[in-house]
Design a protein around this nucleic acid. Structure first.
Lengths: 104, 104
DNA sequence: ATCCTATAGTTTATACTATAAACTTATTTA
DNA sequence: TAAATAAGTTTATAGTATAAACTATAGGAT
């Protein structure tokens, strides 16, 4: 008889699991809508890294990107999509399952 | 005035954060002591990957490795160290902090 | 004896990924 | 008009995870 695994549950989605992206998404989960500069300050990422990570998230349709001008300066707004919100929910579930067996 | 970050807390330790290693450590957290073959079955990793990951964990002193022979066959036992246990605790704390702000 | 298969791992080669450095474009300011 | 600032993007590099290939030993089968 094949035994049941001691630890159950799927592995977390790597796109969300990466600390930089997870923090970005967590910020968006809280404020719903944020611009490039604000996220930069919140996360302490470099601009290059922030740009790349948000692009990946946008490509996966977890966030939307809206580019505009304000005071003759570019401004980029990001927002979590429903798909993004769902992905975060699932991620949270998966992680809770594994964290549950770790010592306090 | 500089604002406080919306999301607080350190980034998770990457050594533990990696899904393959996290699962291995979680298994050891539960059973305390396990051999190579058992971990192989539990995690579904390839032997190569398992070997490499456990070596990394051993090098970081999060687990101990004990090699022996049983029935003329090599047998490798792994065990979580106190340091490993502490690292898991810290990891759990850090992750809970960020998961807390995610939607349910 | 030697050939084949299985067991238990390790080493190495590759493909991926995160990240910072360098670059772009536009706008003030000196 | 030269320099500095702002807001991003592109690219180069270094690091990492993972599987494929390899090593070593044992136990039959022929």
């Amino acid at each position: 008889m094949t035994q049941k695994a001691v630890i159950s549950g799927d592995d977390p989605d790597r796109l969300l699991h990466e600390p930089a992206r997870l923090r970005l998404l967590a910020n968006l989960a809280v404020v719903r809508r944020a611009d490039f500069t604000w996220l930069l300050q919140q996360t302490g990422l470099t601009r290059g890294n922030l740009s790349v990570q948000m692009s990946r998230l946008a490509e996966a349709e977890l966030v939307t990107v809206e580019k505009m001008f304000r005071d003759n300066r570019p401004r980029t707004l990001y927002e979590l999509t429903n798909k993004g919100r769902d992905a975060l929910r699932q991620y949270k579930k998966n992680m809770h399952k594994i964290l549950a067996v770790l010592p306090d």
